[in-house]
Amino acid sequence: MVEQRPERPTTQDRSVGERSGSSAVERVASSVPSMTSGSTSLTRPRATELITENGRTTIADTVVAKIAAIAAREIPGVHELVPHSAASAIAGLTQRVTGDVRTAGVRVDIGEQEAVIDVRMVVEYGISIPQVAEAVRRNIMNRIQGLTGLSVREVNIEVTDLFFPEDVAAEAARPAESRGA
């Protein structure tokens, strides 16, 4: 069983790989970053790393989330991104505790090689939702791959609402207190 497990030498489990006598349970726990509960995982932000001969380049998870958010907004027809929950107000706290990053409607889960991105968005009325969603998905994948080298396994898109541009034009003419918000 132990021999069949694929060896993935990364920064997280490099030291573990040296210890040949460690039990199977220990090794599984150590090779899964989310399960390691050492102090380093709390003091050090989770991040994408590239180690070169001249030094290490670290890209924070927030950066990946922001790229996804910007990439989504680049597509015409995307009106805005919707935060994942009310708890996103304390996103800084949840991020520190759970390790997941929420940036303005984008949730990012980064594994050793791949990332999974969840996006919640409001689209404009009149566009083809599947077409726009596909464009958003492609753009997020291309941008993240191009800028960080990280490959994106999946982009899950949730369209939460429609936006009617005519409403805003009408509301702009009315006093502010009549807006429902």
């Binding site: 932000p45 991040a47 001249n54 030094g55 290490r56 380049t57 670290t58 890209i59 924070a60 927030t62 950066v63 922001k66 790229i67 910007i70």
Partner: peptide, 16 residues
């Protein structure tokens, strides 16, 4: 000078 480690902590775009 070795190594030179670079950490990208955040990202900003124009008007955002």
């Amino acid at each position: 000078v070795r190594p030179i480690d670079v950490v990208i902590t955040d990202l900003e775009a124009e008007g955002q």
